[in-house]
Amino acid sequence: MSDLAPALIRVRGLFHTYEPGAGEPVPALRGVDLDVRRGECVALIGGNGSGKSTLAKHLNALLLPTAGEVIVDGLDTRDRDAVWAVRQRVGMIFEHPDDQLIAAVVEEDVAFGCENLGLPPAEIRSRVDEALRIVGLEALRRRPPHLLSGGQKQRVAIAGVLAMRPRCLVLDEATSMLDPAGQREVMETVLRLRRDEGLALVLITHSMEEAALADRVVVLAGGTVALSGTPAEVFARDDALRDLRLEAPPIVALARGLAAAGVALPAGLLTAPQLADAVAAAYRRGRGEA
């Protein structure tokens, strides 16, 4: 990690303990360190109850540290005066699209966050137009959100966050309620935003296929970071993953099975196109073409 490019988000020694009204306090995070650099895509994976969603809520000051600190673009989330600036920089997309949409038509929904920033109407208009264009929903701007598909609803939620001009999007299981087309739609949208707008992404997901698309995978277990590295490094740790209630994506398992049977494949194959290219090359070598 280069010191020249300071992290957009810096989490140091983060502890979080939930204090229920009755009963024992529940420690959810126990000393987490995490950096998210500008424009980086980090996947946060882990078993149920590992602390992923708790950590996510710290990234935009929805929760505040019991101990430790979270610094977003130089702002300490514990600083009360910085809360809105933090939330403007880090936008959250949650699992249930219906819980996030509130207005009667799409463009009003997209404008909602900007209105709360107190921006002048002309500025809001231009930001909403731009956000709708970026997520490809201009044609549906006057539709009531409840008539949209799940994938479209999530894109509306993303547009609402984009209109705030954030530096980072945190997607907390944002595709888990969607059908395969909706999942593709949302993932293509956010990966494009990262490429074209330089947005950092934090993907919290139970989908190992989605995690394989990240630059870096961080595995949480019992409220601490248990494993981290590139997707290829993390998904190569089969035994560790099993202990952490995770598993490699099917393509990684297939590549491993082929390599074990003596097929010469490069290391670190993660996606179906990568594996298909590598196997096709082995096939051509076998035919004496290469």
Partner: peptide, 8 residues
């Protein structure tokens, strides 16, 4: 839906 790979 919403479960980790081992629970699935």
């Amino acid at each position: 839906a919403g479960l980790d790979p081992a629970s699935r």
